[in-house]
Design a binder for these strands. Structure first.
Lengths: 112, 112
DNA sequence: ATATATACATAAAATTCTTATGCATAAATT
DNA sequence: AATTTATGCATAAGAATTTTATGTATATAT
C-alpha cells in the first residue's frame, strides 16, 4: 500500500468507512477513490483489496450485487447492518490508536 | 500488542522514539514504559520486542551494551547516528499516516 | 495496431505479530 | 519455608495481513 508500514492493518477500516459514505461501491472504484483522496499517497493493491472484500463478505459485514455494465462485470459491495456497526468500532479504534501513538511520540500529550 | 490491528507496523517507530528520548534503555524497560505511557492500552509482547531490537541492531540503528545489574543481565540499547536519522523519518511517516487516514475517514479534512 | 484503463481473481512469498515455551535471578506473598 | 510474581532475555511455531507476480477479459485512447 503506502510507502510506510504503518498502513498495515488499516485496510479494513478504510474499506468500511468508504462504503459507509458511498452506500455502494465496487473494488476498482475503491482503489481509485483512495488514490484520489490521498493524492496518490496510498495505493491499495488489488492483491490486498479483493481478498479483504471476500473476507468481509464471508463475515457478513458486506453484501454483494453483481451488475453487468456494458460488457464487463462489476461487483458492488454494500454494508450490512452488522457492517455498519463494525464501521463505528473500527473508526473508534482508529481514534484510539492515534491518541495512543500521539502520547508515545509526543511527550506533551501524555497524561501523567 | 493492542486490542486493535492498527498497531501492526508501529513497533519500530515506538522503539526508536523512546530511545530518542531516553538515550539508553533495555528491553524490559521499554515494555514497562509503553504500558505506563499508554495506561495499559498498548502492551508490547516480548515475542515482538526482542526480535525487533535484534533487527534494529543488525541494521546499524542501535548499539548494544550489556550490563550486569545485581546478578542479572541487562542489554542496554542506544541509538546510533543512523538510528537518530531514521527516527526522524519514522516520526514523519507517522504524521503522514495520521493525516492520510484523517482525510480518508473524515471528509472535512479532504483537500479537493 | 498497440498501449493504457477498466474489472476481477488467486497464489507464492514476505512481513509482522501472537502465542507458547524456555531459562534464570530477585522479591513478595502465603 | 514454599510458592507466586516480577525481572530479564530468548526463540520457534503459527496466524494474519500485505506485496509481488500472474492470469483473464473488455473498452478506450494513441
Amino acid at each position: 500500500m503506502g510507502n510506510s508500514k504503518l498502513y498495515k492493518g488499516s485496510l479494513i477500516t478504510i474499506i468500511l468507512k468508504l462504503l459507509n459514505e458511498h452506500d455502494k461501491m465496487y473494488g476498482y472504484e475503491i482503489v481509485q477513490r483512495v488514490k484520489e483522496i490521498t493524492k496518490d499517497e496510498l495505493k491499495i493493491t488489488e492483491g490486498a483489496l479483493y481478498p479483504s472484500l471476500h473476507k468481509l463478505e464471508a463475515e457478513g459485514l458486506l453484501n454483494v450485487e453483481v451488475l453487468k455494465v456494458g460488457n464487463r462485470l462489476r461487483k458492488y459491495y454494500k454494508l450490512t447492518e452488522k457492517g455498519t456497526k463494525e464501521t463505528v468500532n473500527k473508526l473508534a479504534e482508529l481514534e484510539s490508536y492515534i491518541k495512543t501513538m500521539r502520547a508515545l511520540v509526543n511527550p506533551k500529550f501524555r497524561i501523567d
